[in-house]
Nucleic acid binder design. Structure first.
Lengths: 225, 225
DNA sequence: TTAAAAAATTGATTTAAATCACATTATTTT
DNA sequence: AAAATAATGTGATTTAAATCAATTTTTTAA
């Protein structure tokens, strides 16, 4: 881990795009920049301190770990996304761990500055509400996935979701199969077996560790009916 | 279901407490009031139309139903809580069902009015952010519960959470055991067996359909270590 | 206060998925 | 390109929880 001052960070955060240069400067004055190597722990049990942790570059996974070591991936943060937004408006502490999935650069922005900015810029408040709404939606989808779908359905749903973001029929997984398994609440062994089964059925074609070619979208969709 | 106009509704919503009477009046001008009997369906697949549905009296459960009929309770709304806040700031459609758990009164407030109010009152925006933050926190706790805890742990956690809100050692469940089971992602049979086991261990004492007396908090807590 | 309905419990059995143990394949690193 | 490491795959077995099928208890309504 390495700390430097860096002003560029805020430019990567869509939510702050509409701020004036002055406002950006004010927010960033007290910001701290940290870098993490792939695999490094960013934190265990988030100490919050009501700051906003912005992923400037790289990718971060937020994980809950049960008493017997089972991992549940809560979210994955990509460039421009941030963490700690809960601590801004609720004083509950979050207990989760965060790891750098790639070489990652994070900047920590003062929560007080953010709150000031929100109070002064209703439009920024709306932006934050939009981000929060998206977060709630994603969480609820996850609850649905884990709660009412069986594992084949969860896999099919995840593949179809990823496919939506892809141009062609090729999915490049943005996470390892091990993380994939954890995200949908199963083990890597079960995921592996199910994917092999999907391949047997001619629905998909596995290639390397991260590539999945969708051959029969309908087959996957039928699982969800 | 029955529709009348009613101005009292907004007074039951904590989030609007600090609005002026004029502002309240404006918001409520276009509001619609509906009542539902216990057990009635409030909606299947929420049509949103970007309005806020406020529970004025009673209790509502929001449910997702899988293709094979399995139910997952997503949230339970009590008096003063509301639904549809996602549609205000995201254009995604929610597909869930809602049922009145008791005789319930709901009023539907225009999303446009709310948005105007938020834009004009940064403090209301902050209030909304607080509510959203709480929602995210609750959703994430649910993901954790379903994702990493086994069923005994989920039950123990739910009981301890309920106990926190109770004055003495007596929990009056705010939901049926069937709903309890659905909330934590299991079946009523399994819940029943586990509670019987907890009672055998001397941790709890079941009384009637809704009362649970906690005899040994430590026993329950130990499950979660 | 009794009858009817709803909710919850209990037992027997099945099943989906976890676990354990090891083999194989991909990906980095030297 | 070979060696080392990390990630994934596969088989055998166990296990937790779901399912199916009655009962029993609690609550509500007549």
């Amino acid at each position: 881990m390495n700390c430097v001052h860096n002003i560029s960070c805020i430019h990567n955060v869509p939510i702050f795009k509409q701020l004036s240069d002055d406002e950006k400067q004010t927010i960033m004055n007290r910001a701290i920049n940290k870098t993490f190597k792939k695999g490094e722990t960013i934190f265990t049990t988030f100490d919050s301190s009501a700051n906003l942790w912005v992923v400037n570059r790289g990718k971060v996974k937020i994980v809950k770990i049960s008493s017997d070591g089972k991992e549940q991936v809560m979210r994955i943060l990509n460039q421009g996304e941030f963490l700690g937004e809960l601590s801004l408006f609720s004083n509950e502490k979050m207990t989760s761990n965060a790891y750098a999935m790639e070489n990652t650069e994070i900047c920590i922005i003062s929560g007080d500055e953010i709150k000031k900015t929100i109070r002064q810029n209703p439009e920024i408040a709306i932006k934050f509400l939009e981000v929060y709404a998206k977060r709630i939606k994603e969480s609820e989808e996850m609850i649905e996935k884990i709660g009412v779908l069986d594992i084949e359905q969860r896999i099919a749903k995840t593949l179809l979701d990823e496919l939506n973001q892809a141009k062609n029929n090729e999915i490049i997984l943005p996470f390892s199969k091990t993380d994939f398994a954890s995200i949908i609440g199963t083990t890597r062994e079960t995921l592996s077996r199910k994917l092999a089964k999907f391949q047997e059925f001619g629905w998909i074609r596995l290639s390397g560790q991260r590539k999945i070619i969708i051959l029969d979208k309908t087959g996957l969709k039928r699982l969800l009916i």
